[in-house]
Protein backbone atom coordinates (compact mmCIF):
# COMPACT_ATOMS: atom_id res chain seq x y z
CA UNK A 1 0.00 0.00 0.00
CA UNK A 2 1.21 3.51 -0.67
CA UNK A 3 0.24 6.91 0.68
CA UNK A 4 -2.42 7.46 -1.98
CA UNK A 5 -4.39 4.47 -0.70
CA UNK A 6 -3.99 4.38 3.09
CA UNK A 7 -5.22 1.43 5.12
CA UNK A 8 -8.92 1.83 5.94
CA UNK A 9 -8.45 1.58 9.68
CA UNK A 10 -12.18 1.38 10.49
CA UNK A 11 -12.65 -1.49 8.08
CA UNK A 12 -9.65 -3.41 9.45
CA UNK A 13 -10.59 -2.75 13.09
CA UNK A 14 -14.01 -4.18 12.35
CA UNK A 15 -12.48 -7.25 10.71
CA UNK A 16 -10.25 -7.75 13.75
CA UNK A 17 -13.18 -7.03 16.10
CA UNK A 18 -11.19 -4.51 18.11
CA UNK A 19 -12.74 -1.24 19.25
CA UNK A 20 -10.28 1.63 18.84
CA UNK A 21 -10.35 5.15 20.24
CA UNK A 22 -9.93 8.06 17.81
CA UNK A 23 -6.43 8.59 19.11
CA UNK A 24 -5.55 4.93 18.54
CA UNK A 25 -6.93 5.11 15.00
CA UNK A 26 -4.65 8.03 14.17
CA UNK A 27 -1.58 6.35 15.69
CA UNK A 28 -2.16 2.93 14.11
CA UNK A 29 -3.01 4.42 10.75
CA UNK A 30 0.40 6.13 10.72
CA UNK A 31 2.41 3.26 12.24
CA UNK A 32 0.85 0.54 10.11
CA UNK A 33 1.29 2.72 7.02
CA UNK A 34 5.02 2.78 7.80
CA UNK A 35 5.08 -0.97 8.34
CA UNK A 36 3.29 -1.63 5.05
CA UNK A 37 5.74 0.61 3.25
CA UNK A 38 8.51 -1.48 4.75
CA UNK A 39 6.75 -4.59 3.43
CA UNK A 40 6.86 -3.26 -0.13
CA UNK A 41 10.06 -5.14 -0.88
CA UNK A 42 7.92 -8.26 -0.89
CA UNK A 43 6.02 -6.92 -3.88
CA UNK A 44 9.22 -6.62 -5.92
CA UNK A 45 10.11 -10.25 -5.32
CA UNK A 46 10.04 -12.78 -8.13
CA UNK A 47 7.97 -15.68 -6.80
CA UNK A 48 6.58 -17.28 -9.96
CA UNK A 49 6.69 -21.04 -9.64
CA UNK A 50 7.73 -20.97 -5.97
CA UNK A 51 5.64 -23.21 -3.74
CA UNK A 52 4.38 -21.54 -0.56
CA UNK A 53 5.64 -22.81 2.82
CA UNK A 54 2.94 -23.02 5.50
CA UNK A 55 5.00 -25.16 7.87
CA UNK A 56 8.73 -25.86 7.81
CA UNK A 57 8.18 -29.61 8.27
CA UNK A 58 4.58 -30.30 7.31
CA UNK A 59 2.92 -33.43 8.54
CA UNK A 60 -0.21 -34.71 6.86
CA UNK A 61 -3.08 -36.85 8.02
CA UNK A 62 -2.16 -36.90 11.68
CA UNK A 63 -4.92 -38.92 13.27
CA UNK A 64 -5.65 -39.79 16.85
CA UNK A 65 -7.16 -43.13 17.82
CA UNK A 66 -10.93 -43.01 17.58
CA UNK A 67 -11.71 -43.62 21.21
CA UNK A 68 -13.55 -41.52 23.76
CA UNK A 69 -11.59 -39.71 26.44
CA UNK A 70 -12.65 -37.94 29.58
CA UNK A 71 -13.04 -34.21 28.85
CA UNK A 72 -13.72 -31.32 31.19
CA UNK A 73 -16.91 -31.21 33.20
CA UNK A 74 -19.16 -28.23 32.48
CA UNK A 75 -18.05 -26.65 35.76
CA UNK A 76 -14.38 -26.98 34.89
CA UNK A 77 -14.91 -25.76 31.34
CA UNK A 78 -16.81 -22.69 32.51
CA UNK A 79 -14.47 -21.75 35.34
CA UNK A 80 -12.83 -19.00 33.29
CA UNK A 81 -15.97 -17.69 31.59
CA UNK A 82 -16.87 -14.11 32.60
CA UNK A 83 -20.57 -14.94 33.00
CA UNK A 84 -22.22 -18.33 33.27
CA UNK A 85 -25.44 -19.79 34.51
CA UNK A 86 -26.85 -23.34 34.60
CA UNK A 87 -23.72 -24.83 33.03
CA UNK A 88 -23.84 -22.39 30.12
CA UNK A 89 -22.08 -19.20 29.10
CA UNK A 90 -24.29 -16.13 29.35
CA UNK A 91 -24.11 -13.77 26.36
CA UNK A 92 -26.19 -10.76 25.24
CA UNK A 93 -29.07 -11.49 22.89
CA UNK A 94 -27.68 -12.40 19.45
CA UNK A 95 -30.85 -12.56 17.32
CA UNK A 96 -32.13 -9.20 16.22
CA UNK A 97 -35.78 -8.22 16.72
Amino acid sequence: MSEDAPMDIDYVANLARIELSDEEKTTYQRQLGDVLKYFEKLQELEVDGVEPTAHAFPRHNVWDKDESKQGFSATEALKNAPQSRQDQVVVPKVIEE
Binding site: L42, L45, V50, E51, T53
Partner: peptide, 12 residues
Protein backbone atom coordinates in the same frame (compact mmCIF):
# COMPACT_ATOMS: atom_id res chain seq x y z
CA UNK B 1 -0.21 -9.70 -2.23
CA UNK B 2 0.82 -10.22 1.37
CA UNK B 3 0.15 -13.60 2.94
CA UNK B 4 0.59 -15.91 -0.04
CA UNK B 5 3.59 -13.95 -1.30
CA UNK B 6 5.18 -14.10 2.17
CA UNK B 7 4.68 -17.87 2.29
CA UNK B 8 6.45 -18.17 -1.06
CA UNK B 9 9.30 -15.97 0.15
CA UNK B 10 9.45 -18.23 3.21
CA UNK B 11 10.27 -21.08 0.84
CA UNK B 12 13.22 -19.09 -0.54
Amino acid sequence: AYYLRAQKARTL
